Simulated scan of single mutants.
Amino acid sequence: MIAILLFLTSTIFAQTIKDISNVVGIRDNQLIGYGLVVGLAGTGDKSQFTMQSLQNLLRNSYIKIPTSSIKSKNIAAVMVTSKLPAFSRQGDKIKIKVSAIGDAKSIDHGQLLLTQLKGVDGNVYALAQGTIIADLNNLTTGFIYDGATIENEVDYDLKDESMITLSLKTSSAKHAFAIENKINKRFGKKLAIAEDTRTINVKKPKDMSMVKFLSIVQNIKLDDSFKKKIIIDINREMIIAGADITIDPVTISRDNFTIRVKKSPLSEEEWNDNAKNRGVDIGDDVKIGNKPIVNIDNALINTKSAPTVSDLMRAMKIMKLPITDIIETIKLIKDLGSIDAEVEIRGQ
Score class of each variant (00 low, 15 high):
I245H: 04
I245D: 02
T246W: 07
I247E: 05
I247M: 04
D248T: 14
P249T: 05
V250L: 04
T251G: 00
T251L: 03
I252L: 06
I252Y: 04
I252C: 03
S253I: 07
S253M: 08
S253T: 14
R254D: 00
R254T: 10
D255Y: 12
N256E: 01
N256L: 10
F257T: 08
F257V: 04
F257P: 01
F257K: 08
T258F: 04
T258K: 10
I259C: 00
I259H: 04
R260P: 07
R260N: 12
K262V: 09
K262G: 07
K263R: 13
L266A: 03
L266V: 02
S267M: 02
E269V: 02
E270Y: 08
E270T: 06
E270L: 03
W271C: 07
N274F: 15
N274C: 12
K276R: 15
K276V: 06
K276Y: 11
N277A: 12
N277K: 15
R278Y: 13
V280K: 14
D281N: 07
I282C: 04
G283P: 03
D284R: 15
D284Y: 15
D284P: 14
D285A: 10
D285I: 09
V286M: 09
V286C: 09
K287A: 02
K287E: 10
I288R: 11
I288Q: 11
I288E: 13
G289A: 03
G289Q: 04
N290S: 11
N290C: 03
K291M: 13
P292D: 07
I293H: 10
V294C: 05
V294L: 14
N295H: 10
N295D: 15
N295K: 06
I296C: 08
I296M: 12
I296T: 14
N298D: 05
N298F: 03
N298G: 02
N298W: 07
A299F: 14
A299L: 12
A299K: 15
L300S: 10
L300I: 12
L300C: 07
I301S: 00
N302M: 13
K304T: 13
S305N: 13
S305C: 02
S305K: 15
S305L: 06
A306S: 13
A306Q: 15
A306E: 14
P307K: 11
T308L: 01
T308R: 01
T308G: 00
T308W: 00
T308C: 00
V309C: 00
D311W: 05
D311A: 00
L312N: 07
L312W: 08
R314A: 08
A315N: 02
A315D: 02
A315M: 08
M316Q: 06
M316V: 02
M316E: 00
K317D: 09
K317Q: 13
K317F: 12
M319S: 12
M319Y: 13
K320P: 06
K320Y: 10
L321C: 03
L321W: 08
P322R: 05
D325Y: 10
D325H: 09
D325E: 09
I326V: 11
I327R: 12
I327H: 06
E328G: 02
E328V: 01
T329M: 01
T329F: 02
T329A: 00
I330N: 05
K331S: 03
K331M: 03
L332E: 10
I333N: 04
K334T: 06
D335L: 10
L336S: 03
